[in-house]
Amino acid sequence: MSKKDNIKEEELINEQETAQVEENQEVEAEVVKEEPTAEELIQTEKDKFLRLFAEFENYKKRTSRERIELFKTAGQELMTSLLPIIDDFERALTHIEEDKEAEELRKGVLLIYQKFYNTLELKGLSKVETKAGDTFDAEIHEAITQIPAPSEDLKGKVIDCVEKGYKLGDKIIRYPKVVIGQ
């Protein structure tokens, strides 16, 4: 073999070695890139922890709100079943007031009614105030009928309240039944 051939062969070997060294460096670079550093691992775990902590805090707040709402409306079914009794007391008081001879009876019924209603108020029951002339609001009132308005200013307004409405806390448990002018 000649010197030229030896030089070419050596160049080829050098090129192959250089290519192999570059390949090894690329593989090492890929290996280095694939393995996160300790700081990156810590940051990833810290992020996971913060997200989990935030989710838990939201869960606690949501369950707390739900529990408070449940306590506020826990007696709703009982209160709803007692509302006809309040209506009966009010009708009895109206009827007794017409009879002047039953003053003692009226005082006794009134005393029982007030005690009963005050007890329910302590448990969160309150009246939905509705009077003639109020503007009709479908979210607060339940319209049972419409009649021709006695005057122009009563069109679209409450003419009469047939049945009182009640709230338990902030939630309406019985809508006031009203007559509307058209």
Rank of each mutant, 00 (worst) to 15 (best):
M1C: 06
S2Y: 09
S2E: 13
S2A: 13
K4A: 12
I7R: 10
E9K: 14
E9R: 12
E11R: 11
I13G: 02
N14M: 11
Q20I: 09
Q20S: 10
E22M: 10
N24H: 08
E28F: 08
P36M: 02
A38L: 12
E40C: 01
E40G: 03
Q43Y: 02
T44W: 03
K46N: 08
L50V: 08
L50A: 07
F53K: 13
A54Q: 15
E55A: 14
N58K: 14
S64A: 07
E66P: 00
E66D: 15
R67V: 06
I68R: 10
E69D: 15
L70G: 07
L70Y: 15
A74F: 10
G75I: 08
T80E: 15
S81G: 00
P84S: 07
I85L: 14
E90Q: 15
R91K: 15
A92L: 15
L93P: 01
I96L: 15
E101Y: 11
R106P: 00
K107D: 14
L111T: 10
I112W: 00
Y113L: 03
Q114A: 02
T119I: 08
L122H: 09
G124R: 06
K127C: 04
E129N: 10
E129S: 11
D134V: 03
T135M: 06
A138D: 12
H141N: 09
E142F: 09
A143W: 01
A143I: 06
A143H: 00
P148W: 02
S151N: 13
L154Q: 10
L154K: 14
L154Y: 11
V158C: 04
V158G: 03
K164R: 12
Y166E: 02
Y166V: 01
I172W: 00
P176Y: 05
G181V: 05
Q182M: 06
